[in-house]
Amino acid sequence: MTPAGSLLAARDLRKAYGRTSALDGVDFSVHPGEVVAVMGPSGSGKSTLLHCLAGIVRPDSGTVHYDGHVLTAESDARRSALRRRDFGFVFQFGQLVPELTCLENVALPLRLNGAKRRAAEATAREWLGRLEVDDVHGKRPGEISGGQGQRVAVARALAVRPRVLFADEPTGALDSLNGERVMTLLTDAARDTRAAVVLVTHEPRVAAYADREVVVRDGTARELAGTA
C-alpha cells in the first residue's frame, strides 16, 4: 500500500540499534521530481531513515516500496545493484576517494555500473561543468576546497542520472554562500532530470530548497500540515 503516484514510499519503519530505537514507526513517501526535506534534531533518526529508504540498512520491520519493488525484501546484492543504477548519494564529508582524481571520482559510479572508462569520464566531465567545477578534473580531493569537493560529490551523485537522490547534510561542512550554491545546483539538476530528492538537513535555509518537509522527532516522522 503506497500513496498514489509515489516513487519511493515507506510504511511503519522501525529500526533499533541495540536498546536505542532510531525509528519507531515512520511513514514516508516521495514523488518523482519532488524534493523532500527531512528535518529534525540530532539523533532523531533522520540519517537512519535515509539509510533505510536507500536500502543501505534493512529496517527491523516495516516496508520500503520503490518503483514496484519491495526494497526491504530484496537481497543485499539486488539492493546494491539498485543503488548503483537508480540512486545517487551525497554526504556531508569524506565521500570522495582520496586517491582518485575528481574526474575519476565522478566517473566511479558510472564505471561501477559497467560504463567504459572513456564514456564515463566524458559524462563526468560534463557534470563537473554543470556544477561549475571544470577546473578540478585532474586534482585529487585533498587538493581542492570543501565547496569544490561537495560540488564534485553532487556531480558524482547526479552523473548516473539517478531516479532518487539521497543527500545527507550536503551543505553541513560548507559556509552559507557555498552551501546555497551547492543547493541551487543540486535542486536545479534534480528538477531537470526529474529525480526525486530526499534531503536530510537540520538547516532551515537548506530545507527551504525542498518542496515539502518531514520532521523526524524521537523516531517518528510527521508530515506537517498545509505544506503542499
Partner: peptide, 16 residues
C-alpha cells in the same frame, strides 16, 4: 571506514 561505507551506499560490489 567511512569511505568504504560511502562506497557501499553507492552500491559498490564487495568483489570490486
Amino acid at each position: 571506514r567511512r569511505l568504504l561505507s560511502v562506497l557501499v551506499a553507492f552500491g559498490t560490489r564487495r568483489a570490486t
